[in-house]
Design a binder for these strands. Structure first.
Lengths: 328, 328
DNA sequence: ATGAAAGCGCTAACAT
DNA sequence: ATGTTAGCGCTTTCAT
């Protein structure tokens, strides 16, 4: 900035103002400054700006995996709301591991973000403490935490699966299995499995048809393998609910390879309303968890909190059951 | 740090050393300092550190879309190599738009990253200039740029499709169509289409069976719609190559809905070796572009360049044709 | 192994 | 509308 100030014959402070929109500055002065900056190949230094002004334009976000369309949608929603207001998302992946999440949160907080959104409501004790002490808005997403740290934008994974179970039972399925969600690392998957078990029990049905599909993220391939085991070990199963549409699609393909007709011989339900569930043949019954909306609402909530307008309270979304051809 | 220094009776400089691994410091002094820091709820300020030391631990990365498994794999590869060395990825999405890329690059450079990796070799003139002037390693990926700005880690999209065309022709297909890649925004998709046209012409075949599938990213649904048009408008087509596995899978489902047998009545090829291509029934013939490897090699190249060891030159990867059931 | 002084590049606060 | 002064929280550099 000093160079530009010298070149244009103004003070560094004026140069500073020229780069900040909404500052009191003569239009010609600003144009001359911006022109000089471009000629000098000047690049504004956010680091110094952030240090002096004691604020950054970072919003920290942690998600379990980068390679998941649901979380990508959430980040997309967040990003569209926050980028428009000049914020930069600082993204980290926990790989479905709370220890990794703790490390990540610690590092993200060192960058002094203005707010932080984390996926899920389960954290290490130290991570929780770090978030509590951070003195910035903390939003937990994709869950309804028993004891929220700050705010949350989520839904009940257990209730969402219960909704599908209720539907399956209502249309006549009785011997219903569940694939995935038993790895304790993926708490949302585990919640879905717990919801499945509780719902079946409430209907007086056997809730022991549980197929382990491995550690999250559960792939299409693992869904297919799990369906293979289900068909071998519990061949009288009438319907299966999978922890996600990806594993559900894998399960569907395994049925196709074995000549098992879906839904006649085996009904399949997924979770997450991924694109594939809407286009596969047959299309998959699933639950839309409003992934993008979670991001948009989180972004809006963050903006409100930063503006001191505590208008939005916590947000509990209602997942939507989508019945398609893979079940009746 | 001053607070911690006071509390432990040392100078702020010693506190600073306690947080930096590999510094000359008494073990007990360090332990006392770290303990005091934890008690005070101290969080290290990267902003100040970065300003004074004139270096950050940011590596800037731009990708067209967050919601694409191929780019996610590349970021995953980059991340695994660079996080292990303490770097933080600063990620931005261009939405397949070079103007947006320019804005993004400008903002990313303000954070003074140590290196920047961008997807593709086509940029606005100003973006190119910004990268040239940045005085940090610049890596272009997913492409072999005609005039690289700095380094590149990529492959020829045109040649990769040519390889599939050669195979299709060798096994007897003659009336071959292409879906996607006509939106000029997605330069890699356009390169694939150009490669398709050139290859067909070299075989003396008609290269006019081109179906527009809309602006990138091309979804499964758009692939299905495109296949619908292809079957209606050019019903004697024997094989189709799609710009990605996602559109190829959509095309496959459209065949299934219409009772068109794949590959007997219509062979299908995709691109990118997405998980779905390996598990769908039939499985999809595709091209593995080594997405994760692009990220890993880019990360390794960046580390070498930052260490001043110019050992790796540019990297041109060889995409691999994978023939599966959707073609013969 | 530790400390003292100086300053990274901006901008808050105040002045004109 | 513009300028002056001081300082954000660290780390470089030099000293002991």
């Amino acid at each position: 900035m000093a160079d530009i100030a010298r070149k244009t014959g103004v003070s560094p402070m004026t140069v500073s103002r020229a780069f900040k929109s909404g500052s009191l500055i003569n239009k010609e002065t600003r144009d001359a400054i911006l022109k000089a900056a471009e000629e000098l190949g000047y690049v504004f230094d956010s680091t110094a700006s952030n240090l002096r002004s004691k604020k950054t334009d970072f919003i920290a976000v942690t998600i379990p995996s980068i390679n998941n369309a649901n979380f990508a949608d959430t980040v997309g929603g967040l990003s569209s709301v926050l980028s428009a207001r000049g914020f930069q998302i600082l993204l980290g992946y926990t790989n479905y591991d709370v220890e990794e999440e703790e490390r990540l949160i610690e590092h993200l907080l060192r960058r002094k973000p203005q707010a932080i959104a984390v996926t899920g409501g389960k954290h290490t004790r130290r991570a929780r403490k770090l978030l509590e002490n951070a003195k910035i808005p903390v939003i937990e997403t994709w869950d309804v935490p028993a004891e929220p740290i700050g705010h949350f934008v989520g839904f009940s994974n257990a209730k969402a699966v219960r909704g599908m179970v209720d539907h399956f039972v209502a249309v006549g399925y009785r011997r219903i299995a569940f694939i995935g969600g038993d790895a304790s690392r993926d708490t949302r998957g585990t919640d879905r499995r717990h919801g499945f078990i509780a719902a079946l029990k409430d209907h007086g049905l056997d809730a022991s048809r549980l197929i382990d599909a491995g550690a999250p993220p559960i792939s299409m391939r693992e869904g297919a393998n799990a369906m293979g085991r289900l068909l071998t070990e519990l061949p009288d199963t009438e319907a299966v609910i999978c922890v996600s549409d990806l594993s559900a699609f894998g399960a569907l393909t395994e049925c196709q390879r074995r000549g098992v007709r879906v839904p006649d011989q085996m009904a399949i339900g997924g979770f997450g309303d991924y694109e594939i569930g809407g286009i596969s043949v047959p299309a998959l019954t699933t639950v839309n968890a409003h992934a993008r909306q979670i991001g948009e609402r989180t972004g809006a909530l963050i903006l409100d909190l930063l503006n001191g307008e505590q208008t939005i309270a916590d947000v509990t979304l209602q997942p939507q059951l989508i019945v398609r051809e893979s079940s009746r």
